[in-house]
Design a protein around this nucleic acid. Structure first.
Lengths: 196, 196, 196, 196
DNA sequence: CATGAATGAGGCTTCATTCAT
DNA sequence: AATGAATGAAGCCTCATTCAT
């Protein structure tokens, strides 16, 4: 489904790939739609648990945005992100009665957002937890959005400069963060002055 | 097709929507794939000519990245960008013998890249044409990538803060440009110093 | 369908019998259900027109109940009444969303009732049109009910004495009619006496 | 099966209704046809034993045709006669290799015929056992046939006047019986005369 | 350029049945 | 006696496509 879309993936194609006859598939899943739901649930689950495992290792390593992006860059377009294609494909396909799929997609997306948020927070931690938190809030969607763009761009043109772009993204977030720090400190300054 | 993908859009569905019998469709197009090709060609054409018309009006208005983004933001997700959904959907769908579609998509994408390049160039023109050109080269893919991400994000969650994100994008590009200017000038300076 | 019921009649069985591929059948009819509707409509139409044609010939012949039954007896269970099996079978099968079928069945049944009514009326015409009409009203459902029973009985045991039973039916109706005449005349008589 | 016919009743539908998995059904019955056979056997058994029980009570009550019909009228179309629908449905369905079903149906039908015979005999007992027996022989099939018609009619139009029709049936049988008595007595008379 | 009809392949799903546990 | 799983055939229907008019 991640390759051909929902309609383009026939049950018989699945039987060819998994060996079981179609009727056996229907013993395990109620529907083609039900199969899709199960696939998405499992993909999300697997992705999440993998990142949880990573996080423990990361405890010793680089937990900033830069480190995260450096780890993510080579994976985009590679097998571990095939799952992303399924998500985006299904998000773009407007099938008829299918709010459940979009729901799952949103759930997974929120999980990604949290991960990004933590990385940004870590990056700006030295500026104080309050500011770091605010910057993380402001910029996490920005990073996620760019990441999705990266994926799509890589699908269209596999030869894009993934490392260059992720480096630019890091720079951009650093700059956005700094600007936010300045404006907040100047606000604080003016607030102090006003308070005086 | 922009709604259901290639496989999900049946000839008979088109028949239902356009009133003509299927055989008439086959008089106009060689086959389903040919119809898709024609649709993409026409959509690209229309999109291009619209932007050409826009460019003339823009001659008097704001031609910088900021102006461009301000104009583009409300259109994302609206009818004029349905065409974008078709493009991205087809780019993600990995159909069997279909390099032609990807070719068209890439062509259109390059056109968009040029537009973005010009806007960035205009934004940094005051820094000199050479630097502006170099910045435009560096940042245009960044902007396009983010734009594609914006589109996808908007499909998943129509309630995202489109204006906030485009403003962040503008800030990010300005920052990236400034840094590039500084490094090039310091490079130039150090070059001069070294040269001395 | 008249032989195997609705569910027992597969589309592919029909294709085997008619030569056309299933997809062609689906060009002509929307559904399996739609096909059934068309079949019933046509069968009813044909049956009706045949009886209309018969009626004109009958104008010269025996139009009483006895004549009618004599003509009908040998046809029960034979090809011209295969159509009846379809009707009764579908009336007994309680399929899910299918009121239309029952509707058609009732329409056809009403037509049969009219025919029977006329024959009874003709039989008792000599007793005056008012009484003949009243007897026809009272006894037509009786005759139709018995007719349906005859059909079912013949399906279960093809060897039943069809002629004997139809003769009994005729006798029964004659008796029922006579009794009704007596009671109405005695009523009239008592009414007269009372009136005096 | 009484509702949807043999083909229209799937094993999995039975599974849904009875809770047991299909494989358990196949432990109890050899196959679908075997299940049908068992169902019919049991339904016939139950129906018979119910009538046996009734007969004992009836010993004190009205054992004539009128009494029987009065008891039967309200039951037609109600749960106790669902079994009748199964019988008639299967009698009309012409399945391939299935003489056994028809056999059972005929057996049950003969039992019903006996019951009717007794009731008619009781009704005419006062005319002498010989005549009563002959009338019962002649009229029982007539009554059974009409009963089957009543059932079918009630399926098509649940609003028919069941009581009116059963009363007409009683009258009809009384009339048929009387006529038979007269003809036999006149025959006897003429025989005597002729013999003289 | 339009249209009604046809067609074979294949779509999703359910069928009756079996088997190992 | 029950159950989860499997299986090939067949169910209804839609697919893309073609053809004669």
């Amino acid at each position: 489904m991640a390759e051909r879309g929902y309609a383009g993936t026939s049950i018989s194609a699945i039987t060819r790939d998994c060996g079981l006859p179609a009727s056996s598939i229907y013993w395990h899943f109620s529907n083609k739609q039900g199969l899709l739901a199960a696939v998405m649930e499992r993909a999300a689950e697997r992705w999440l648990s993998q990142f949880r495992a990573d996080s423990k290792q990361r405890a010793l390593g680089d937990r900033t945005l830069g480190g995260m992006l450096a780890r993510a860059a080579p994976e985009i377009g590679a097998p571990p992100t095939e799952f992303l294609r399924l998500l985006i494909l299904l998000a773009l396909e407007r099938r008829d009665g299918d709010s459940e799929t979009l729901e799952t997609i949103r759930r997974v997306r929120l999980r990604a957002l949290e991960l990004i948020r933590e990385a940004i927070f870590e990056t700006f931690r030295s500026a104080g937890e309050g500011d770091a938190g605010r910057i993380a809030d402001t910029c996490s969607v920005f990073v996620l959005t760019f990441g999705e763009g990266l994926f799509v761009g890589q699908q269209i043109d596999p030869g894009i400069d993934m490392n260059g772009l992720t480096r630019q993204l890091e720079q951009a977030v650093l700059a956005l963060g700094r600007e936010q720090l300045q404006s907040s400190s100047s606000q604080a300054g003016s607030a102090r002055e006003t308070g005086a």
